[in-house]
């Protein structure tokens, strides 16, 4: 990311990392999460769930910043995002 001015506390800020979890059985393939993800983390899978819908899959897990927008916009309670803890610890150590 490019800044017009480097923030004074730039070295202390950690970009949060998220981990996306899918409840595939609930998905109805509306593609809201794929369309509205601001980081382009998700793509639609070519496979089907038991109800016959295509469901999303995580294409770029490293881009997820745990913004939870996919979780909030999903009408089917089928996707949620949890903060990734292990990776952050690894990076700090």
């Amino acid at each position: 990311m490019r800044y017009w001015r480097v923030p004074l506390d730039a070295d202390q800020i950690k970009i949060p990392q998220g981990e996306i979890h899918l409840l595939v059985d609930r998905c109805k393939g509306c593609e809201f999460c794929v369309e509205f993800c601001p980081r382009g983390v998700l793509v639609m899978s070519s496979e089907y769930n038991p109800k016959g819908y295509h469901y999303p899959e995580v294409a770029h897990p490293e881009l997820c910043v745990d913004c939870d927008l996919c979780e909030v916009i999903c009408p089917d309670f089928a996707i949620f995002c949890l903060p990734k803890t292990e990776e952050v610890n690894d990076g700090a150590s």
Partner: peptide, 23 residues
């Protein structure tokens, strides 16, 4: 806060009611 045994719900794919309920 959901009766998750009733899910997936009856609302059509791309219906907005689920999102409103979540909010």
């Amino acid at each position: 806060l959901l009766r998750s045994d009733r899910l997936p719900h009856i609302w059509c794919a791309t219906c907005g009611i689920g999102t409103v309920l979540k909010c």
